[in-house]
Simulated assay, not measured.
Amino acid sequence: MRVLVTGEKSYVGLNLKKWLSQWNDRYIIDFISLKNDKWKNIDLSNYDVLFHVAALVHKKEQPEMENLYYRINRDLTLELAIKAKRDGVKQFIFMSSISVYGLDGLFGEKQEINQSTPCCPISFYGKSKLEAEILLNKINDENFKVVIVRAPMIYGPHCPGNYSRLRKLAFYTPIFPSIFNERSMIFIDNLSEFLRLIIEEQCHGLFFPQNKEYVNTSQLVKLISNENSKNLLLSKSLGKLVKLMGYKKIAKKLFGNLVIDPSLSEYKQFSYCIADLPKSINISEKNIEKGV
């Protein structure tokens, strides 16, 4: 089976290729850049699946960037999908985001995405992703199966974003707040296995992959610390102080609650979750240490 991935430096795309390399006799993975118009002249008919992960992502959004977000995340996505369909690609997987809901998480109370949660994006990123989803679903049919993947925070070895920031805290902070919160996240290998199953089964529709268990920020930082033989103290007193500052954006970002209803994510009874949280942190930190 031949899979074409957009975004030559994509963290998710590169890790999918690494994961699928376990089945070299089954999958062939190629990458394509969308940074210029050369892709428009490439024949896609040799590919069974197009995995579209390239996007303009979370940078500090400025009003003058609005058109750029829509041009890349919506218009380019649709143009690529139309070409893929015309060339005979059978499955189009679109990497979307829970940003389409416009939820940042609540500090001190539960916030859950479920079947009835409305999509109310507040960022250019979320709005452009949602509009791309709507347009893609219009060209879905039996011969061109569209998959929409609304993923929560992705983490793993060398991943950009929040995991790297939490890792720095685990290394350089001797004490960390002990606060109970819950976040939906997904380990990169779990996501890669999910994508493999979606490809193998030639699925279509809307999916919400996540780890089987929710993640607590304090527990996550403690696990990272333990894996690196660091002595991190979790302090309830410091946790109480953070709660007093609950209106602060940093407290909300670190310890806010935002989860996906598990019933939305139980594709194949969560069989794609090959690593629980402790195992995933162990794998991540060992691979970072090895430079893998």
Rank of each mutant, 00 (worst) to 15 (best):
L234W: 05
A84Y: 03
L135K: 15
N73A: 13
N257Y: 08
S192K: 09
I154P: 03
S284Y: 03
K248I: 09
H204T: 06
E142T: 14
N15Q: 11
E227V: 03
I122G: 02
D141C: 10
G7L: 11
V221N: 06
L191E: 05
F176P: 02
M65C: 00
H58G: 12
F124W: 04
N114W: 01
M95A: 14
N226Q: 13
I82K: 12
M65R: 01
I288M: 14
C120P: 00
F194Q: 02
L4A: 08
E8I: 15
T77R: 02
N73G: 07
P177L: 03
S10G: 15
V53Q: 13
G108E: 03
E285W: 02
F107R: 07
L254E: 01
N73S: 11
L254C: 10
L34C: 12
V100G: 04
V147L: 05
I281S: 11
S225V: 11
E131R: 03
N24E: 10
D30Y: 02
V57L: 14
K286T: 13
D189C: 09
V3A: 10
I188D: 09
G156Q: 06
L103V: 06
E200W: 06
Y69F: 10
C273K: 00
S229Y: 12
N67Y: 03
A84L: 07
S45I: 04
A81K: 03
K290Q: 14
K286Y: 06
I28R: 01
L220S: 14
G239V: 06
V5R: 08
E200L: 10
N231R: 08
A54V: 15
I283V: 07
K40E: 15
R196N: 09
I72E: 12
C159S: 14
L234F: 05
G246L: 05
F180G: 07
G205Y: 00
E64A: 07
T173A: 13
L14R: 15
I224D: 05
I82L: 15
K212G: 01
Y47P: 05
L195G: 01
L197G: 03
Y101S: 08
N24T: 13
M65T: 08
F270S: 00
M185H: 04
K83N: 11
F94Q: 04
V57M: 06
H52M: 13
K222V: 13
Y27N: 08
I98F: 05
K212Y: 03
N15S: 11
L166Y: 11
K243F: 03
T6Q: 06
L135E: 08
G161H: 08
R71F: 11
Y125V: 07
S265E: 02
K17Q: 15
N282G: 08
V146M: 02
N216H: 03
S184F: 06
E8W: 06
S225K: 07
L76W: 12
I288Y: 09
G246M: 04
V49Q: 00
Y163D: 07
H204G: 07
L76N: 12
L34R: 11
